[in-house]
Design a protein around this nucleic acid. Structure first.
Lengths: 348, 348
DNA sequence: CCTCTTGCAGACAACGTTGTCTAGCCGTGA
DNA sequence: TCACGGCTAGACAACGTTGTCTGCAAGAGG
């Protein structure tokens, strides 16, 4: 005896099979379409009839199957979100902002982490497309997004956040990483530092290279050389970062200040410097909770992750509503928040 | 001229209408079912037929519509996640753990925030049910989940995390908040404190009351009275928390130590105490990033949010696979991490 | 030569909903 | 009395996929 076709159970709700509009219609003694009308609040149903239908609905525990609805209507009221890591606190406010915007438009959020892996990004994104999300918000991990062309052509509103799309012209929301990194580096220079290290995330990440460029330009603008051993890029694995930091802080000519390229690196650097004998100035990209309570208080270049998400969602829903304008690119500012850790004087 | 039925465009891909298996079949000169077989890697297709189908697929930019598939198969390969706030760093690792488990089973994650609002929780959860998620992971905000009975009866695997379900017997994963809170309070008592304040989240939240209970029991076990003005429950809004804290720290008989009931409250307390003239001991429930770098280093009762999520997902997929065993309840430990802020001696 | 088996492929219904179209009923006005 | 319009309600097809069943051709065995 299968669960789904138990002939003994009649019209009452059977375990494992959900009641459908047909069941409700049968029980209420009305037509299928009338149930649909009641469920969707459409006019043209007498109060009486509606009452009977509602009773049948609650009696059976009916709930509309939105998969079927979706199939029929062509819109899923779902937004896909692809980012690096759901667990990274930086993306929390971003996700939440996208979620809020989605909710405002009656949509839900399908989210996933790429783990900075291009293959995983593509698999995930295409899985979202297969589910026919109405729109996509992507923090890209790959540098070639041509695989999305058919999807975009088919009407999937797509917005890239935090990093630009690769080989594709699409709506994009970025932070001004270059300016932020320049400001951070200039801040350290202004406080007398000449040997400044930069420890960043992996080099294929756009934000990493922009921040590195900002660092380099600020150094160049102050006529300061940048030695090869002063820059280290790689994963944000604490072990890797610690190793890189120790290398810069050791030797006869150690750096006297550090500019760290994202929140993970900054956290590791703060931990290491706290136990380091020589006071070393530090400016981080991205703010950290409680950063202002460290000793010295942490100076950072802060971006507004929630605003990033909100703006992306705005572009997305604009596109869904408006049609096919030219892709837009929005650049949001990042601002230095001087708190002290960037103002330590260079040690000899 | 409508977009969807443009008669001039024939079988080539039209903007806004996605190619279907039918289109692919037509173009490849095969039957519909053959395309289905190729797409799903089913056997029984000759290599060159398959080749023709694959060519048609790439030429048209076909991607299977999983909504339709879902409708036909009855499983959506989707897990719903309802929590308090996607932006709260506490839930980041939890979400990620659920996502990972889902991915391991080929499922995606539909996530949303309840904002601690029972109505919103219910709306969100039922919206997920309408989309026919295979399972639900819920951090409940309400105390009555009977509205989920029909869903669970219909086969939606449901797991409650961090807090128990209300008026419903279901799989649950909890932290041992009582023991954790006792340990925290006892730690403060052991370091000489007699007037200890508890500042917690809203009183309708299970974790809040359990932690409050732990605090009370530890105080009672040490024969210490608990004055009404030493406990304050409410939203985690920093203004509210600061107000409550100031009240406890003022007056002729201020508390000499604080036990804060969750990460948000602890962060606010740490900020306030940093600027407070009188050193005051602090133990927080939930760890905070960089807490070990504060001055004094932050002592906390830590729970493993990722483990919470992983365990919940495990229960969920067990239930999906296994069938209808009795609901299970798993309680995970919370452990004190003494770092210093709980060892400050009481000031007179 | 006929039958049987095997492998490939298509026709068709079904999943649960919504849009369109039509039928019946009532009351109104010529 | 008849035609007509407005209102309620149902029949039916369609959304895009998959499961079942059947058909055809080629090869094996008698």
């Amino acid at each position: 005896m299968t669960q789904r076709n138990d002939p003994t159970s009649g019209a009452s709700p059977r375990y494992g099979r959900r009641p459908t509009m047909k069941d409700v219609a049968h029980r209420a003694g009305v037509g299928l379409k009338t149930v649909s009308r009641v469920v969707n609040g459409e006019p043209g149903v007498l109060p009486d009839t509606e009452q009977r239908v509602r009773e049948a609905i609650t009696a059976l525990g009916f709930r509309r199957n939105d998969s079927a609805r979706t199939l029929r209507k062509g819109r899923t009221a779902t937004v896909g979100l692809v980012l690096e890591d759901l667990a990274d606190p930086f993306y929390g406010p971003l996700s939440r902002a996208v979620e809020e915007a989605a909710r405002g438009h009656g949509a839900l959020l399908l989210a996933g982490s790429s783990d900075e892996d291009p293959v995983r990004e593509q698999e995930l994104t295409l899985a979202l497309c297969a589910r026919r999300v109405d729109g996509l918000v992507i923090v890209p991990a790959s540098d070639d997004h041509r695989y999305l062309e058919p999807e975009i052509a088919a009407g999937v509103a797509t917005v890239f956040v935090d990093r630009p799309a690769g080989l594709l012209d699409a709506d994009t929301v970025l932070t001004d990483n270059l300016a932020g990194a320049k400001e951070a580096t200039a801040h350290l220079i202004a406080h007398g530092h000449r040997r400044i290290g930069f420890v960043g995330d992996q080099p294929q990440i756009h934000t990493t290279t922009e921040r590195l460029r900002g660092y380099r330009e600020a150094m160049a603008a102050a006529d300061l050389p940048v030695r090869a051993e002063w820059t280290a890029l790689g994963t944000t694995d604490p072990g890797r970062v610690e190793h890189a930091l120790r290398a810069m802080l050791a030797g006869p000519d150690p750096v006297t200040a550090l500019f760290t390229g994202n929140n993970r690196v900054t956290a590791t650097a703060a931990r290491l410097l706290a136990g380091h004998p020589r006071p070393t100035a530090l400016v981080g990209f991205d703010d950290l909770e409680l950063g202002e309570l460290l000793d010295p208080p942490l100076t950072v270049v802060a971006q507004d992750a929630a605003l990033l998400g909100r703006t992306a969602a705005e572009l997305l829903f604009n596109r869904l509503a408006g049609g096919a304008a030219a892709p837009r690119r929005v650049v949001l500012p990042a601002g230095l928040i001087p708190r002290g850790s960037g103002e330590l004087p260079p040690h000899s």
